[in-house]
Structures are given as structure tokens and as C-alpha cells.
């Protein structure tokens, strides 16, 4: 695929300038550009297995909230998690996060094969008959992935929730404070590699990204592109 620059696309990651500085090679993906790999990135797959941080903000995601949301999602053929605080992988690898009884977030798969976020956004309409309302999560959240065997220990430097792998199963969600800002943390292992998605305030992305990189240093973790994460699955 041809490389591109984020500013040529209407949808830009909140931190595209930081990624560009770090040597990111961007590839076009729908209406956005995603950091696929980094110049001088070395063996990014090995890094991702150890401790990797990737920006997934350009990937599709959406959200719905309101009393009738679970029912509506079911009519849209979405397999919703049984309980709040759980995420459920769909047959096309999209992930559905249930944040509360009536609030759900739907995020794309890493290969962006899933059409689910786009389909739901297209299907949804504000209706007087149904209490299901759109939450523009592609804009309100930045989306990072933290992968690798050191991910739990590194997150313990910035988060007070017990995320040890035997206590916090794949698919569990913690809505909590991460480096002093609110965040949704969901464990979503990539193949056999433990991994966490972080969804946090998009306006705080410029703050959070370097903060996480600083926390990663002692574990010799680093930035990885989407290609490295794809290789893990």
C-alpha cells in the first residue's frame, strides 16, 4: 500500500504530529491515515510481544447509549456482552464493549475487515419511538493499544486497578483513572500476546501518549505500528 500523510485526510489522529516526529510511515485507511510502521523501528513484532504502544485512533469505532440500546443492537445482529464491564468479540472480529446496562462501544478489528461500526452509524437514526442515542466515540476517544508481556506491569505505574493477567481476564473492561485522566481499559489479547486497548479523552491524547511512553521506558518498550499488532493475531 502506498504511504501517505495524515493531513491529506479529513480524519486525523489527535497525535499525528507526534507520530510523524517518531518516524511513522502512514497508510491510508478509509478516511484516515494510520501509522503502519516506524522508520528505524527494528523488529516491531518482537517489541510488541515485549511491550508495544500503538495508536489506533484512526480506526473506526462508534457508540450508542440509552434504555433501548441493547435491544436495538440485537436487532442489528450484534452479539452484545451479557454483563456491563465485559467486551465481546464479534464473528468479524469487531469488539463490542458494554460500559453499562445501556451504553455500548463498538470498535473495529485490526485488519479493518469489519463493517460493523460504519454499518451501525449508517443504520442508526434518532427516533421518538426508541431510546437509543448515538455517542460519537470516534471523536470523543483516542484509541491506543498496549501489548506485550510487560503491559500489566507498566500499566500498574499509571493505573490503580489490578490488571494482572490471572485476575483480569481477556474481555474484561475497567473504566478507571489512567495517569490521572478517565479511561476505558479493555483486555483484548492479540493471539497469545496479552494486550489492552485504552480509550481515553481525545483532547488529552497529546498528554497521555508521552506519559505512557515514559512509563514504558524501564521495560524497554516502544512505539509500534499497526502492522506489528496485525502480525500478532
Amino acid at each position: 500500500m502506498a504511504t501517505t500523510q495524515p493531513a491529506q485526510h479529513p480524519r486525523r489522529s489527535m497525535i499525528y504530529r507526534i507520530l510523524r516526529e517518531a518516524g511513522a510511515e502512514f497508510e491510508a485507511l478509509a478516511d484516515a491515515a494510520v501509522a503502519m510502521r516506524y522508520a528505524d523501528g527494528g523488529d516491531e513484532v518482537a517489541l510488541a510481544r515485549r511491550l508495544g504502544l500503538a495508536d489506533l485512533s484512526p480506526l473506526a469505532r462508534t457508540g450508542f447509549k440509552g434504555r433501548d440500546t441493547p435491544d436495538w443492537l440485537v436487532t442489528q445482529q450484534v452479539a452484545i456482552p451479557d454483563e456491563p464491564g465485559q467486551a465481546r468479540r464479534q464473528s468479524d472480529d469487531a469488539l463490542v464493549l458494554r460500559l453499562s446496562a445501556d451504553e455500548h462501544v463498538i470498535v473495529s478489528d485490526l485488519r479493518t475487515r469489519s463493517e460493523l461500526p460504519a454499518t451501525l452509524d449508517a443504520e442508526w437514526q434518532l427516533s421518538a419511538e426508541r431510546m437509543c442515542y448515538h455517542m460519537p466515540r470516534a471523536d470523543s476517544y483516542c484509541w491506543f493499544a498496549i501489548s506485550g508481556e510487560c503491559a500489566t506491569e507498566m500499566l500498574a505505574k499509571v493505573c490503580g486497578v489490578d490488571l494482572r493477567l490471572d485476575k483480569f481476564d481477556d474481555g474484561r473492561i475497567a473504566q478507571t483513572s489512567l495517569a490521572r485522566i478517565n479511561a476505558v481499559i479493555v483486555r483484548n489479547d492479540l493471539g497469545t500476546t496479552p494486550a489492552f486497548y485504552v480509550l481515553a479523552d481525545s483532547a488529552s491524547a497529546d498528554y497521555l501518549w508521552p506519559c505512557l511512553i515514559d512509563a514504558m521506558k524501564e521495560f524497554e518498550g516502544g512505539i509500534v505500528g499497526l502492522a506489528a499488532l496485525r502480525a500478532l493475531v
Binding site: P84, G85, G160, V161, T176, S177
Partner: peptide, 10 residues
């Protein structure tokens, strides 16, 4: 009741 046991600072 929603998030389980958490530090009171949350």
C-alpha cells in the same frame, strides 16, 4: 455496584 471494588480516590 457498576465497577466493583475500587480505590476511594476514584
Amino acid at each position: 455496584p457498576l465497577n466493583g471494588p475500587r480505590n476511594i480516590s476514584e
